[in-house]
Nucleic acid binder design. Structure first.
Lengths: 251, 251
DNA sequence: CAGTGGTCTAGACCACCGG
DNA sequence: CGGTGGTCTAGACCACTGT
């Protein structure tokens, strides 16, 4: 009848609220509820699935935060209409981003070296003036072998930890490498976006005329424990690259 | 001693979890807890403020979602280091955005008229081909009277609802006007960002040389009820405007 | 082991909305 | 008014972390 399981397993390792939110989400995807339909009330779900009301509320909270449901006080809980959409403001690597857009990500590594942290990086991470050198990686990023952008990455890595050209070439994705080699998981990022114009070297590396518009993104990233990981300057061809964000009004 | 009230008012109209989260946030801002310090455990807060543990958890949840705290299972709840950069990916109007950056927002209204919905808008909102005309508003936006960008807004408003030039000039902020006049509250938005170069008219309106880099933002917005509100094309001077986003890895 | 956060229950009362 | 979601309590047990 319905897609997937339609009752709660009491001894599952997965929490009940998670099971319940999956059930509801599957019912929506299976067409049981149309956009703007009201789903059953909290007390009804409580009884139907033999869980407490807080568990029901926790499950619904998961789905409202995902944008699957929306609630109106005194009225009910409703199915949100689907968005055509794509990459929300989820944090992803260039590799994953390109895969999602249907391209094969590639790279040409220009240089890997140790340098002093650039000013912007030191500010963002509040690094002390005598902080150790950071690892700088310069790359041209490609999609289906066409140059898309230039990445200049600065990594906060202890002197004894490093990354070789061949190692990065083999893995392809820096974030993947950071995770497998150093157990560094990128969890949060701040980004600043600006428009700029290509200088002579940039135009050469990207194969566009000097002065063409480029999208400049500066990214700082943190781990789950809020440790600084990376400061990255990314320059993209305006004719090939655009950037998506989804936002809400902080509920 | 501490900043602000340090106990919970039992009969306040404001919910207890909100009072408690404010108290904790103020204590952090007042320097009671340094970045990466552990705040008291849930049972301790429960006793100290005479509330139940779920209320404590609700308060802490507010602050973790704001990025003020982070939690580690089995260890504790810690103060997140402050980011220099506040304006997260919260949805704001140009007016509010400029105020936050310390400028006074202004506008020069070029035109208000009814037009057919542009293709991108019709796609994003899945409008039928015979949909009614939308209200288009062309404006130059200023910060401290300097031109910053060009906004071309298309509003989904029934034929009998409209906005006059003088009305918009008086209010200053379109989002504020939509809220007060039509009870339309902008709750969600998708944005696409690109770099581009100024054409002759754009360069004239913004006072920059032809061909200078501009940041192009296309925004579509929805109400709380997920009704389409607005499709907006915004062009900003690259030398005056940059864009901030904060992202997490979908927890 | 003790202490932390994570999940869950079975109740209660309030605030809001519609008929 | 009855039904909805919003807040709150006082318990319980589990899962994870460090010592």
């Amino acid at each position: 009848m319905t897609a997937g399981p339609n009752r709660i397993a009491p001894f599952s390792s997965s929490p009940k609220y998670h099971q319940l939110s999956s059930i509801i989400e599957q019912q929506i995807q299976a067409g049981f509820f149309a956009p703007h339909d009201a789903i059953p009330g909290e007390r009804e779900l409580e009884e139907k699935y033999n869980v407490s009301r807080s568990t029901v509320r926790q499950a619904i909270q998961v789905l409202t935060r995902k944008g699957v449901l929306y609630r109106e006080h005194g009225k009910g809980t409703y199915v949100a209409p689907p968005k055509l959409n794509h990459s929300l403001s989820k944090l992803t690597s260039f590799t994953a981003d390109m895969r999602q857009r249907g391209f094969k990500a590639g790279q040409r590594i220009l240089e890997i070296l140790r340098v002093e942290a650039p000013t912007r990086m030191a500010e963002a991470f509040q690094l002390p003036p005598d902080a150790p050198l950071v690892l700088r990686i310069d790359r041209v990023r490609t999609a289906d072998n066409n140059p898309m952008g230039i990445h200049t990455t600065h990594l906060v890595l202890p002197e004894h930890q490093s990354i070789s050209v061949s190692e990065l070439e083999d893995t392809g994705s820096l974030y993947e490498l950071l995770e497998t080699r150093f157990n560094l998981i990128v969890a949060e990022a701040d980004e600043t976006l600006e428009a700029t114009a290509a200088d002579s070297e940039e135009s050469r590396l990207l194969g566009v005329p000097e002065g063409s518009p480029l999208l400049l993104i500066e990214r700082t990233t943190w781990s789950i424990r809020q440790e600084p990981i990376e400061y990255c300057r990314m320059l993209y061809r305006a004719d090939k690259y655009s950037y998506y964000v989804h936002m809400d009004r902080a509920f």
